[in-house]
Design a binder for these strands. Structure first.
Lengths: 209, 209
DNA sequence: CAGAGTTTGTGCTATTTTTCACAAAGTATA
DNA sequence: TATACTTTGTGAAAAATAGCACAAACTCTG
């Protein structure tokens, strides 16, 4: 095991390996080589080995990795034995889709609260969750032990919402608003910018050789 | 102007600069320095200058960039003068949210078709778009000149849908399914993996110092 | 118009991330 | 058990990306 800090892309790929390992164990495949795992995840064999190398030695020369053993090890490393409570702020089309997305719960991420500023929406129930006023955020975050906030509001109010989440003591933020948010160092911020991804594709269309 | 190939992260940031410039011109701010643009986009001044440097010299020493001029230049570079037709495959909660998202049209990305395999959904109309059977994809892609396909179906069928999109002659793909897709070299593939982003945050919760 | 202050553009350097490549350690076969 | 494979783990090399730092170009002020 190596003591250097682990690059974030490595963490991200570990989840990809884990997903594949879950499939493999379901299919009763007992061992897999870095090469084969690489093919299945569109990554190189060297990358697979290097990534795992940050956390220890899991493989056996000549035969590869025990799928179940590696799966358990990754679950441990990635904290999949734990669950986390999540709040969604902004229940428009996207926020509503996030509330309904089953993939989160399967992965130990429980959406336990929803906030919106629209009087029309407050009090309504979606997927078993009552939409609350943003004013109730500090209380709810504490009571429901919410550690991650998802921002799916328009760009104009995203910073304001981020500030409110942070002062309510949320630990990390996933931001869907297409704007650069300022958050304190200790808050981990991830951005998902849907239209930017699409726009990037359009650049390649416009500039193809 | 520099002839080296432009890194993809640069392209992506160019859209960020452009958004900011659009705001600035709306606010009638005529010039901006790389430093100030950096503050507004959470990037360094050097990065801003370096990124723009891939495409030419837009600034004026001592005063900075003319906001409108730079905006127009970036729109040109990024192909924002053009529009592109887009199809969404998989009209679940996420697909529905994408159909309803106004940000795409504003940016020249017109969703002109929607596909689903569910008999229950085919024929229904969402946001003015009739959901079609996946079998109609080749014909519709041709007729409606669709160049980008968005995949928002479950992981299990995502590869199959990708193959169908490609054989229907879609040029690029935006994939929301949490799985590694195999596509030919010439097809540009972008992945947005919602639960992976959230999971990455949960890793930092589980492993915080 | 001279001197002080800004800000760009960019060669160079640093850092981060990926890939290479191979000794060492295992497996399989006969 | 010996020989031929296979595959790992990991230093070292390469590639990609970001940041530094400064001359040159321009603005501003009195």
């Amino acid at each position: 095991m190596n003591n250097k800090k682990v690059p974030e892309p490595v963490i991200s790929r570990l989840f990809v390996y884990l997903r594949e390992l879950i499939e493999l164990t379901k299919m009763n495949i007992r061992t897999i080589s870095s090469g084969e795992l690489g093919v299945r995840t569109n990554l190189s064999d060297a990358q697979v080995r290097k990534d795992l190398g940050y956390f220890g030695q899991f493989g056996v020369s000549g035969s590869g990795y025990d799928t179940n053993e590696l799966k358990v090890a990754l679950e441990e490393i990635l904290g999949k034995d734990k669950t986390w409570n999540v709040a969604v702020v902004g229940i428009g089309h996207l926020g509503g889709a996030l509330l309904a997305y089953p993939g989160f719960k399967e992965r130990g991420l429980n959406i336990v609260a929803a906030f919106d500023s629209s009087k029309r929406k407050i009090g309504k129930k979606i997927k078993g969750i009552i939409i609350q006023s943003i004013d109730e955020m500090p209380k709810t975050v504490t009571n429901k032990k919410i550690s991650i906030g998802i921002i799916s509001v328009p760009a104009k109010v995203a910073q304001e919402v981020a500030d409110k989440l942070i002062s309510s003591r949320v630990k990390h933020i996933l931001n869907f608003a297409p704007i650069a948010l300022n958050v304190p160092e200790k808050i981990k911020l991830k951005n998902v910018d849907l239209s930017r991804e699409l726009e990037t594709l359009s650049y390649f269309l416009a500039n193809k050789k």
